[in-house]
Amino acid sequence: MLDTAQTDETLLEVNNIEVIYNHVILVLKGVSLKVPRGGITALLGGNGAGKSTTLKAISGLLASERGEVTKGSILYRGATTQDRSPNDLVRGGVIQVMEGRHCFEHLTVEENLMTGAYTRSAAEAKQGLEMVYNYFPRLRERRKSQAGYTSGGEQQMCAIGRALMSKPETVLLDEPSMGLAPQLVEEIFGIVKSLNEQEGVSFLLAEQNTNVALRYAHYGYILESGRVVMDGVASELRENPDVKEFYLGVGDEGRKSFRDVRSYRRRKRWLS
């Protein structure tokens, strides 16, 4: 992939944050990352690594889940996002597409999209609707159906489209590939790519599907048990032997089994 859209300007900066849920459960133990304007930045890692928590810490959704950023800082365009409500952040250009899509099931697809324009004027909403339907022609076909009855792929499109309605500068996209067929995953990532290139939307993408994410992203961070363990330009990460072995499933000597004790030890050492 060509790095045409990415610039040097840092939009979002996360500095060594620590997140605690319910005052006791330590989930993030010092995560730092940067999202440049116009880039697609991937946040990779397995289940429970803290990808979603990182995104929620940025978008301000943590508070409603009894989570709290206890250390470090999150800066958006140089200003701290702490104590800003999600509503305020959406107005400021940061919006999150939550894991598991979270469409409003009983609303039609179009009504779903319109809720995304809650912070915008009616004229902007109309304009946004046209733009979203251009990128997701399938949504135009299903616009009158109840979102709860559309397919998983359509719901994911609906969720992304809904976020686009707020005219965001940065979209925090959580696990868009979840539960979708490989072909659909490619389709959705393709649209993300073109949104990035044509509309100039920056993305911070949390994803378990390392293979796909690294093909579309410019830069990647790998998260393990609440820490960033590695980061680098996407194309370099893809060639890194450890990433290859532990995330892409191909080692130097071809595919490996996790039953292999040596590999397991090496993995443990690398993580701790």
């Binding site: 919006i95 597409v97 939550m98 409003f104 609303l107 009504e111 319109m114 995304g116 309605m165």
Partner: peptide, 23 residues
């Protein structure tokens, strides 16, 4: 109305409503 749609959205899914900037 916009507020009415937002109201139904909140009824469906609090978290998602929060995430799209509905107060």
């Amino acid at each position: 109305t916009k507020a009415g749609t937002a109201m139904r959205a909140v009824a469906d899914d609090h978290q998602a409503a929060l995430s799209v900037g509905i107060s």
